[in-house]
Design a protein around this nucleic acid. Structure first.
Lengths: 174, 174
DNA sequence: TATTACGTTTAGTAATTACTAAACATACAA
DNA sequence: TTGTATGTTTAGTAATTACTAAACGTAATA
């Protein structure tokens, strides 16, 4: 008694929804991606409504976020005014795209505020132990962020982040 | 007119709070870590209450999460029944610890559900195009997750993930 | 110009999450 | 044993976030 494709798709979609939530995105976002990812052809907004049960409004805003991250692509058909959406299937490309997006994010602003704390201290140095201690700690964190940042930038620069590169990294880490 | 240390600490704490939120943790968690990180000595619960303005209850639960991730350490003093908390200052160690924690998480369960979808399809194969298409897609995602997972595992295995290793990785990616 | 077929925005609601205040548990001290 | 100093749990509230329903804008078509 074979499990129906419908059931499998549903389970898969639920799985991605949870993964989405885990990363702090709405679970609906994961569901939208899953539906597109399992569709052989690009889907229109209304088709996504039908598949996910979400409303047009929600999908409209969330799919824009997905597009900004490079996880879905919007296309049109000649003589059809609907938009059609397809999932990005090259996940390595998606990672690059997400990392790029990250650069202008709230996160980066916060990271910069650590850097700012450091320069603020530089500019009006007070020579006591507490001051020195604080400085060192802030500096250490800043350096850590910088390391992470150069990693991210290195990944962005790769033309392709395929399995070969991942394998290389694994090799070095041995 | 030098910026006071208090002001700098406050800014720093706010920065970490935002970073914490960005990663889907409560902002209070970032604040707690920041306060501990900038303290030369371990702090008691009540001292953290004083510094952050949060209540004991909140701190109690959130600091447990931080400890589970290896971002703070609990200690005691002889003849003093308070607990004292200090921030982990080796961020690379913290990353390892967080990755380990992740292994048993909700995330991992979700990832496994993708693998499960795959085996479910294996076990009662239907030989038509839609089925094949779906199988391929699910399989591709599963392989991607596996690549990520081996990376994570490789990092966990390193005795130390210092700057040298990061530099090595950067070298390979050139 | 009016109508239709779409996507977007908006205002409000539901659901979730972070947090508080206070009761509780525990261990030590008197 | 009672009281006191601690950390934890719980029940409820505040704040945030995800989502809906419906109004809106716009461009193509009649």
């Amino acid at each position: 008694m074979p499990q129906s494709l419908t059931k499998i798709k549903k389970d898969f979609t639920e799985g991605l929804s949870q993964i989405s939530r885990f990363w702090g995105f709405p679970k609906g976002m994961g569901a939208i991606f899953a539906v597109l990812y399992l569709s052989p052809t690009p889907l229109s907004l209304d088709e996504i409504v039908a598949e996910t049960g979400l409303t047009k409004g929600a999908i409209s805003t969330e799919i824009r976020a997905l597009a900004r991250m490079g996880l879905v692509h919007r296309s049109t058909k000649l003589g059809d005014r609907k938009d059609y959406y397809a999932a990005e299937t090259d996940f390595y490309a998606a990672i690059k795209s997400i990392l790029k997006e990250r650069q202008n994010s709230e996160f980066d602003r916060a990271v910069k505020s650590v850097k700012a704390a450091l320069t603020a201290m530089d500019e009006n140095w007070v020579d006591n132990d507490e001051w020195k201690f604080t400085y060192k700690r802030v500096q250490a964190l800043q350096e850590f962020f910088e390391a992470i940042d150069s990693l991210a930038k290195a990944v962005i620069k790769l033309e392709s982040l395929g399995f070969s590169n991942v394998t290389k990294i694994l090799g070095v880490l041995k």
